[in-house]
């Protein structure tokens, strides 16, 4: 077979390579599938955002009308604010919690395997399962209320998911419960790669635990942090399931995220053009992170 050219054979590097039909199929079939189900729909999605469309009759081009309407839509602004809050709280706390637990559980010792497994178990649950587990707790007279009563804080009791003041936070807690174990695993993998020799050297030089953490461990985790940060931003903007399962964005849009507002605008109010415009906003918010991720991924590639 002359078509097989190993990647480091310099002799043939300059000659252009003509892939065999089989190789072409290997590349083109999956690429075509992704084009049909992702690339082309994404282009269409941007196009639809410039139309008014109920899904039945043909889309009517309206220029930037949807975007103008978004700018003045209080529900959209609320959802945007909630999404930012979600990113900060859900993202920030899961990084803190995940990193903290990874530090606590990085050293192999008795029991560590069990603790890690406990924290990790919820990661395999769907967000819907997670939501249903927690919904039970939030019920009137459920565990949360019982615990508050037991410690004498019964005046705080309220319908957690039905109160606009608390709904969003009541949704973030279960989301965190599931996310912290995931971030912990990523940091555990990153910590494994930290050079122990540098740690020893710092110890000999008299650096205490905090100094070693701050000046030795954290700088070496730069790569992991970048990955986790992109994962968190992309995940946060995608977050939908847990909110949908617990509150559907309510009450009175108090736990509405961009993703849930997009879904209900499109599939419940049947305003497909308007929904597409919200989706484009989500895309634009994610774009910087996506590009950053791709640049990183391909710098390592070469």
């Amino acid at each position: 077979m002359t078509t097989v050219i190993s990647t480091n054979s310099t002799a043939r590097r300059r000659r252009s390579f003509r892939p065999s039909p089989l190789l072409l199929t290997f590349v083109l079939v999956p690429f075509a599938i992704e084009s049909i189900w992702v690339f082309w729909p994404a282009i269409q999605g941007v196009f639809f955002s410039f139309t008014r469309w109920d899904g039945l009759s043909a889309p009517v081009p309206v220029g930037f009308d949807n975007y103008v309407e978004l700018a003045g839509d209080p529900v959209f602004r609320g959802a945007l604010g909630n999404s930012v809050l979600w990113l900060v709280l859900f993202g920030g706390l899961s990084i803190l919690g995940g990193f903290g637990m990874a530090l606590a559980l990085q050293r192999e010792r008795r029991g560590v395997g069990i603790y890690r497994a406990a924290l990790f178990l919820p990661v395999v649950f769907s967000m819907v399962v997670t939501a249903l587990v927690w919904r039970v707790f939030y019920q009137p007279d459920g565990l949360v209320d019982q615990v508050l009563t037991a410690v004498g804080l019964e005046h705080l009791i309220r319908p957690w998911l039905a109160d606009p003041e608390t709904a969003l936070y009541a949704v973030i807690i279960p989301a965190l419960w599931r996310q912290i174990g995931y971030i912990m695993v990523l940091y555990l993998a990153g910590l494994k790669a930290v050079d122990p020799a540098v740690h020893e050297a710092a110890k000999v030089d008299g650096a205490n635990n905090w100094q070693r953490l701050w000046h030795v461990t954290i700088p070496q985790l730069k790569g992991v942090n970048a990955v986790i940060l992109s994962v968190i931003v992309i995940d946060s903007l995608r977050s939908f399931d847990i909110v949908w399962a617990l509150t559907r964005g309510g009450p009175y849009h108090s736990s509405e995220l961009l993703s849930t507002y997009m879904y209900s605008a499109a599939f419940q109010s049947l305003r497909l053009g308007y929904g597409s415009a919200i989706a484009v906003v989500i895309f634009l918010l994610a774009l910087a992170v996506i590009i950053g991720y791709l640049v990183r991924a391909f710098r390592e590639e070469s």
């Binding site: 892939p19 690429f31 992704e34 639809f48 993703s259 989706a279 484009v280 895309f283």
Partner: peptide
């Protein structure tokens, strides 16, 4: 394993598609 022309671009495009927020393609 093969020096297919444009292979990096193809890989980049395919990964980029996966990173898109699903919302942008839901309606289409």
């Amino acid at each position: 394993r093969f020096r297919i022309p444009g292979r990096r671009t193809i890989l980049l495009l395919m990964l980029a598609g996966n990173l898109l927020p699903p919302q942008i393609v839901l309606i289409p």
